[in-house]
Design a protein around this nucleic acid. Structure first.
Lengths: 218, 218
DNA sequence: GAGGAATTGAAACTGCTGTTTGAAACCGGT
DNA sequence: ACCGGTTTCAAACAGCAGTTTCAATTCCTC
């Protein structure tokens, strides 16, 4: 019997993790099935209990990998890396939209996991997701927004504006099926995503400048 | 053979429809269970087959009611009803956000059904939803956007901008759980929704004016 | 090579889903 | 009171979910 190429990447545990990533990313936590994952990983169903304990703990392990991948493959742009906060916003929006829209590029699974988790949170995994992923993104957007509008909006309005910018980045992902049926499918290529991100950045910068002007006249 | 519909208000059929509306609105098509619906309606499980044929046909019936409710309770603002297209946009955003965010006001269920259907479309019901609901909304936003920026953006960009405006309205609903965990829960009262809608309208108008100015300088 | 731990395997368990069945109950018209 | 259609009911169906069991196998160490 010829021994299969047994690198450290080909253990049952790794194959399970890899297959689970794809299933969870495509279908979300609830809709993904343990049996389908194990079939894809060429493993027995009992392996998920043996290696991870349960479906939910397997999901958390997938999230750990995805979060690590997110920060390693293409790091999040930070406002202090730019001279102009508007340039920072452009770069951030492009980065964020590549994150959520790209299917097989820099972030094979993190963006899709993120999309599922946002609209249908998995109770046990939601706080992990918010801490490692949504929280840092929101904080950075808030810092960029502050740098542009000079801050000092009332608290609620400030948060509304921050999440408005985020909404511009994630909507194409969340509403993909509807957009497609309405004749406006979201881009999937890196070039197409960057082009759309540029439009969103124009929109966001003009929108924020409106608030900045509103501040000045006070 | 299943009989034609009744007209009275307390028939089993009517109770089923009412209970199904709430369950589908809260959990979406897949997650809502026929047994839970029948329990809430104080009816036997077989009643859904008897009166509607299947869970999916019951869901379509719920959508019919919701769509009718949507156009009757509070009609969609149209651009020709206003002198200024920016005022039309303000009114439209406020209307749309009330639609998707309100829990027990003018649109008890339509907005929540819409939210579920947008992010997790039900194969059999998606085209009905797009035709009766998403399509008209998108068309009206497009008309308002045209009136503001004077149109003549390249096709793709124009669509991007239209859906950017829509994103501002629906994101708070789609990301409700995340926003709540990040300390910024979406408003639920009519006054709170209107306040947030005003901020989104400011943002959108400034954003669109940016494109309008961009057009002029060409 | 033998012993013992680590891993895999097929099958069953519990519990849920939407659907179907066929008989019982109900109700209005004769 | 009787009939015939309408409506309800409890129960079972087939199927899939995640989890569990425990024997069989593989792997490593002595």
């Amino acid at each position: 019997m010829p021994p299969p190429p047994e690198t450290s990447q080909d253990t049952t545990r790794h194959r399970l993790l890899h297959a689970a990533s794809e299933e969870f990313a495509r279908d979300g936590f609830t809709a993904a099935s343990v049996r389908a994952i194990c079939d894809a990983a060429d493993a027995n169903v009992s392996a998920v209990k043996y290696y991870f304990g349960s479906k939910e703990k397997l999901y958390l392990s997938v999230w750990e990998v995805a979060a690590a991948e997110m920060v390693s493959k293409e790091p999040m742009p930070r406002v202090e890396d730019f001279d102009d906060p508007r340039a920072a916003l452009r770069a951030f929006i492009a980065w964020f939209m590549r994150l959520v829209l790209t299917e097989k590029d820099a972030h094979p699974i993190a963006g899709r996991l993120l999309a599922h988790e946002t609209v249908a949170p998995t109770p046990g995994a939601l706080d992990v997701f918010v801490r490692n992923c949504a929280g840092p993104i929101k904080s950075e957007v808030a810092r960029i927004v502050d740098a542009i509008i000079g801050s000092r909006l009332p608290g609620k309005q400030h948060g509304d504006v921050v999440f408005a910018v985020i909404a511009l980045c994630v909507n194409a992902k969340h509403s993909r099926e509807i957009l497609t049926l309405l004749g406006h499918p979201p881009p999937t290529t890196r070039a197409g995503i960057n082009r759309m991100a540029s439009v969103m950045a124009d929109f966001a910068i003009s929108g924020l400048d409106g608030f900045a002007k509103q501040q000045e006249t006070r």
